[in-house]
Design a protein around this nucleic acid. Structure first.
Lengths: 129, 129
DNA sequence: CAGCATCCAGAGCGATACTG
DNA sequence: CAGTATCGCTCTGGATGCTG
């Protein structure tokens, strides 16, 4: 860790050691969060998710659900009926994650406008036309 | 909220309307967060960032810095000296973001092990060999 | 020192079609 | 209903080399 250095600057951030990145890698996928939000208030079926998460394809829904299940963020319950019925439900861990995301949501909503303005200003500054 | 429906299920989540996704789109890039973390405790120079954020290429550092600057998350100060010196500093908005990320960091650290185990178990279950 | 331009490989994701 | 399989594009990001 510490080398006998008196300077402050180092502050090395390792992409692999950084826990924030770990979460983000898990959550950054285009759909993961949306699915978590959609499933936040109780068990939900495949087709309901398909409708609930606007714009998601069947393929991506399946893939994302598998990943979330793999990470232990949701459980998959197959009801052996005809027609088949599968329900997905957030695990406690995922609920905690959902709660933590609220901080970000909040940030986003507070600064959404500011950021949009900043972008517009920047673009105007750099592309006169 | 309620449509005359007695069922609960609807819960439509729109990818474009969702504020969480907005943040994530901004932050999910492989490097944004790491740069924010690296710059969190004061102004920092280009080369210092290059060393501080392990594994980043010069190209990605430049690109990510531009995006962060564009969003108003950091300021770029050029000191007209020889050799040139450029300092990047987080804006208050970015500091707030950094604070919000703590919730996620925390979550990640609490469940890192559990998640890894869950993955291993899942993989074992689905790929006997 | 700080950065831009070019080239290139791979991941991510959408569209579509088929199945238990 | 709840998936799986295949194709192909787009976009990200790494490597390298050139400049003020």
């Amino acid at each position: 860790m510490s080398q006998g250095n008196t300077r402050v600057t180092p502050q090395v951030v390792n992409a692999h050691a950084c826990p924030v990145r770990e979460v983000l890698d898990r959550v950054a996928g285009k759909w993961s969060v949306l699915i978590i939000v959609a499933a936040a208030h109780g068990p939900i079926r495949f087709t309901e998710l398909e409708r609930g998460v606007e714009g998601i394809s069947r393929r991506m829904l399946t893939l994302t659900l598998r990943n979330l299940e793999r990470d232990g963020l949701l459980t998959r319950t197959v009801h052996p009926t005809v027609p088949p019925k599968v329900e997905y439900e957030l695990t406690p861990v995922a609920h905690e994650l959902h709660a933590s995301l609220l901080g970000l949501t909040d940030w986003a909503e507070r600064h959404r406008v500011t950021i949009a303005e900043s972008r517009a200003a920047y673009d105007a500054r750099h592309q006169p036309e």
